[in-house]
Design a protein around this nucleic acid. Structure first.
Lengths: 217, 217
DNA sequence: ACCATATTTTACCATATGGTAGAAATTAAC
DNA sequence: GTTAATTTCTACCATATGGTAAAATATGGT
């Protein structure tokens, strides 16, 4: 509609800088990796900076403190998480199909973002000290909507009268275990690393057991 | 039968000391608590010592290093874990009943030892750097026996032909979530802390869904 | 080329922390 | 009570780490 300039009043400080964008992205990526391996306290910002190819002081130029950086990492993760969470919102299909997609999405998330999942998990285990407020305000409404949907299904006699909350706890934990506890899973299976077939097997197993378990198959 | 002395050949260095026993126990207990809240790197041995009512140097007299102390905490936890693991060994009852007891035992463990479970979880998430060898040698054989038992049940047509390994991953993750991710569960349920009724509900829910899901009910 | 701004480097600092050495004090067997 | 061992305390230390201050350098628009 208007001209290509979005800020007509900008006179001088109108720089966003590709270099900043790139560096911040790189730092966030490395930070996710290191935080997932060593936790918050076990990760030195100097180590993050080194892996990102810059000095610690330079990193601190982009993220004013370790806390701020960690926060950003957590927020990115939670947003990813909440995206998949909204799957139940899209009504229209059959309950079985929706739950199947939900489970598939969660396993997929574990496969594609294992590091993020681990950072998130450690944060939750430690009582979510940095995340509690954000979690409460963002998770709760989505969960409540999902729970209500399941309750409706139950009321309509479409599935067994199970506790919806615990159903979600079950799905979350069983799907995330392939990211968070991958070392234990790998050790149990006698594998070095899980491959696509393993995730496929996991998805099929979980959908079979959970859907049948709640009377949806 | 014999005299009250168990070591007739002991001449001088025959002290075990109740005080050492008591102090070590106290230290281990506090350490479990703090490690579960702040992780390995986030926990200062000085903090552990303070909570145990002694100086850091005194703690170091009982445990020669932080690593050693952490190791001991982990071993205690893993032993607890493996105990409940052997439930499947006691054959004789019906498959359904055995699995039911197994699940009940795991939930019970989450309820009675949430801190231990958390320390264990963080260690696993971080790739089990301190525990891998011990885990491999102690978990694997028990798990293999359990897996074989399930395979037998499947071969006998007693249950659905599911993947036994993933069944155990499912049970481990879904039961431990009530310890490890308790803060998330509490937040989701809108509760300050889980009570007995919650664990009861969880147990009933999990046994219902999992047993039915694998064709055992 | 010039200049304002963005980026990077150099130089420090205060604090926390795991660990060591050895003296002092306590304990318990004899 | 003496004695040998156990337990605790005093004094340190080396290192790691998050963070600050400010100078130096690069960048991009005009």
């Amino acid at each position: 509609m208007s001209s290509s300039s979005d800020e007509p009043s900008a006179k001088k400080p109108r720089r966003r800088s590709r270099i900043r964008e790139a560096h911040e992205a790189k730092i966030l990526h490395i930070a996710e990796e290191l935080f997932s391996r060593n936790g918050y306290n076990g990760t030195a910002i100097e180590a993050i900076a080194e892996h990102a190819g810059m000095s610690k002081q330079n990193l601190l130029y982009y993220f004013s403190s370790k806390e701020v950086l960690y926060h950003r990492v957590l927020e990115n993760i939670l947003d990813l998480w909440l995206e998949k969470m909204a799957l139940l919102d899209q009504e229209g299909e059959e309950p079985a199909e929706m739950l199947r997609n939900y489970i598939r999405g969660k396993v997929e998330l574990s496969r594609t973002n294992p590091k993020a999942s681990k950072v998130f998990a450690i944060e939750i285990i430690n009582g979510a000290p940095h995340l509690k407020d954000y979690l409460k305000s963002s998770l709760t409404p989505v969960l409540e909507a999902d729970v209500q949907l399941v309750k409706d299904w139950i009321a309509e006699g479409k599935m067994d009268p199970i506790d919806p909350y615990h159903l979600f706890f079950l799905i979350w934990s069983s799907t995330q275990t392939y990211a968070d506890f991958s070392s234990q899973v790998e050790l149990s299976l006698g594998k070095g690393e899980l491959d696509e077939a393993d995730y496929q097997t996991a998805t099929e197993f979980l959908t079979h057991v959970i859907l049948k378990g709640v009377g949806l198959s």
